[in-house]
Computed example of a mutant assay.
Amino acid sequence: MKYERHEYFEIKIEKLQSNSNLWNQTIAYANNCSWNVGRHLAKLLEQDDFQDFEGVFIALSGNNIIGFCTFLETDYYPENRYFPWISSIFVDEEYRGNRISEKLIQSAINNARMFGFDKVYIPSNIIGLYEKYGFCKIDEIENYDGDIDNIFMKEI
């Protein structure tokens, strides 16, 4: 499937705050996005049980949410031998190809540095994307569904 590239649009990445008017908008966006992980993110936001260093980053074009990622201590694995996780990385189909996921990941990395982390991890079944952003595959882990995910790590 090929997506139309937008010629020019300004992207803003923001760490979502629970008192933000974007909180409920992000829940609605996540619930309705094309990836089922969005519904999991919506539940996390509804519970609002994040540790100080954890959070959700959203990509905005104007007032429209066009993507998100999480920064969490635990992820979708019975064996949680790595942390912190940058995960649930999603960009609207019509905005893909504009390096928005890279901007989301970089914002999460900047957050990790502020809290003293020296490594971050991304779980994914995709090969060839996160390597472009300086991540290396270091492991494979079985998730709660019984599927095997690649684990990528980057020293920051």
Score class of each variant (00 low, 15 high):
35 W>P: 03
35 W>A: 02
35 W>Y: 08
37 V>K: 08
38 G>R: 01
38 G>Y: 05
38 G>K: 01
40 H>Q: 15
43 K>A: 15
43 K>T: 15
44 L>H: 08
47 Q>D: 15
47 Q>I: 14
47 Q>H: 15
47 Q>T: 15
48 D>P: 09
51 Q>T: 13
53 F>A: 10
56 V>P: 05
57 F>M: 06
58 I>P: 01
58 I>Y: 05
58 I>K: 00
59 A>T: 01
60 L>A: 03
60 L>H: 03
61 S>I: 00
62 G>A: 05
62 G>H: 04
68 F>D: 02
69 C>M: 05
70 T>A: 01
71 F>D: 03
73 E>V: 03
73 E>C: 06
74 T>P: 01
74 T>V: 11
77 Y>L: 13
80 N>Y: 10
82 Y>V: 06
82 Y>E: 07
83 F>R: 13
83 F>Y: 14
84 P>F: 07
87 S>Q: 08
87 S>T: 12
89 I>A: 05
91 V>S: 02
93 E>F: 11
93 E>A: 10
96 R>C: 05
97 G>M: 13
98 N>P: 03
99 R>N: 11
99 R>D: 10
100 I>R: 03
101 S>Y: 02
101 S>A: 13
101 S>K: 04
102 E>S: 14
102 E>A: 15
103 K>S: 08
104 L>C: 03
106 Q>N: 08
107 S>P: 02
114 M>T: 14
114 M>F: 12
114 M>D: 15
115 F>C: 13
115 F>R: 13
115 F>P: 09
120 V>T: 09
123 P>S: 13
123 P>K: 04
123 P>D: 12
123 P>M: 08
123 P>V: 07
124 S>D: 09
126 I>R: 07
126 I>C: 05
126 I>S: 00
128 G>K: 13
128 G>C: 11
129 L>C: 03
130 Y>T: 07
132 K>V: 12
135 F>E: 03
135 F>Y: 12
137 K>E: 11
138 I>N: 05
139 D>F: 09
140 E>G: 13
141 I>R: 10
149 D>V: 10
150 N>K: 10
152 F>Q: 01
152 F>L: 11
153 M>F: 09
154 K>R: 15
155 E>F: 14
155 E>I: 14
